[in-house]
């Protein structure tokens, strides 16, 4: 591939070093995507000072570029229909996730989160987890999110508080998140059967911690028609104890929530007054 003219050539960097770089290789694309992500997040996130419409639009543009770079670095599935579906639901999930964290109004953030959940449910369906896709919608969007909205309406029914209009360390946080994503992407991109020993894809036996005595069950076809029934069998067979533990945990969480609420109703005047500093600010 011929090197394209780089704007960096005008800078004092040696051209020879840059000319050897494959500008469309996945690594470079990824680096560009991560940088764009950091800048766009920083631009879009609400922050102190003048936040003009221009900077927000620039941020949205950069975000779109980031998405394009992500799509470019993605791996081809070989099946165009499948690819299109996965791309669509992934885009829904990612865009609405970004909107969740950048939207100033908490209520809108919650609604964006609901959309994100539907995207995630789609991704899960594409990945063959039908039960989980449905369960995510039901449990999250149907139960948890509604609870969040209840709390929001209880506490902050209208308008935006000052704390919704600014954010905490937006630049540093955006860079940190982008760097994390870059690191994760690097390791994901390296996943292949012929990678060096350090980062070779684990076999199923290794992943499930098999020993010489117990070989893991053979791979099952997750897409079989009775997969939900088999998931249930797995859940209440191999993981029965964990299921029971989770049940107890739910009960404890229920009792704990009630206990905390009823304790808090009595009110601790001294403690409350000591915290008036925050209220008066």
């Amino acid at each position: 591939m011929t090197p394209i003219a780089s704007p960096f050539t005008t800078v004092s960097l040696p051209t020879a070093a840059l000319s050897g770089i494959d500008w469309l290789s996945p690594g470079v694309l990824l680096a560009a995507a991560v940088t764009c992500l950091a800048v766009s997040l920083w631009l879009v996130l609400p922050k102190a000072g003048r936040s003009g419409t221009f900077s927000r639009r620039l941020g949205l543009l950069l975000g779109a570029i980031t998405l394009g770079l992500f799509i470019a670095t993605g791996h081809r599935l070989g099946n165009l229909g499948e690819e299109a579906v996965l791309l669509t639901v992934s885009l829904v999930a990612v865009i609405s996730a970004a909107a969740t964290i950048t939207c100033r109004s908490p209520v809108y953030a919650a609604i964006w989160f609901a959309l994100c959940l539907s995207g995630v449910a789609g991704v899960l369906l594409v990945l063959g987890a039908q039960f989980l896709g449905v369960a995510t919608i039901v449990v999250y969007a149907g139960a948890i999110l509604v609870m969040f909205l209840f709390v929001l309406m209880l506490a902050q029914p209208s308008g935006l508080t000052t704390s919704d209009r600014i954010t905490n360390e937006p630049l540093l946080s955006a860079v940190a998140g982008a760097v994390l994503l870059g690191l994760l992407s690097l390791s994901i991109g390296r996943l292949s059967a012929d990678a060096p020993a350090c980062c070779r894809l684990p076999t199923k036996a290794a992943a499930l911690g098999a020993t010489a005595e117990s070989t893991p069950a053979a791979s099952v076809d997750l897409l079989a028609a009775d997969q939900v029934a088999r998931l249930g069998g797995e859940l209440f067979g191999r993981h029965l104890v964990a299921v029971e533990a989770i049940g107890i945990l739910l009960l404890i969480a229920l009792i704990g929530a009630i206990a905390i609420v009823s304790h808090g109703l009595e009110g601790d005047q001294a403690e409350t007054s000591s915290l008036q500093e925050g209220r008066q600010a």
């Binding site: 969040f148 704390s163 954010t167 998140g177 994503l181």
Partner: peptide
């Protein structure tokens, strides 16, 4: 999703968000 969630938890001041 994980990275965006991380950025959100680091930046947003609203407890619900």
């Amino acid at each position: 999703l994980f990275s965006l969630g991380l950025v959100g938890i680091l930046t947003r001041r609203n407890l619900i968000v």
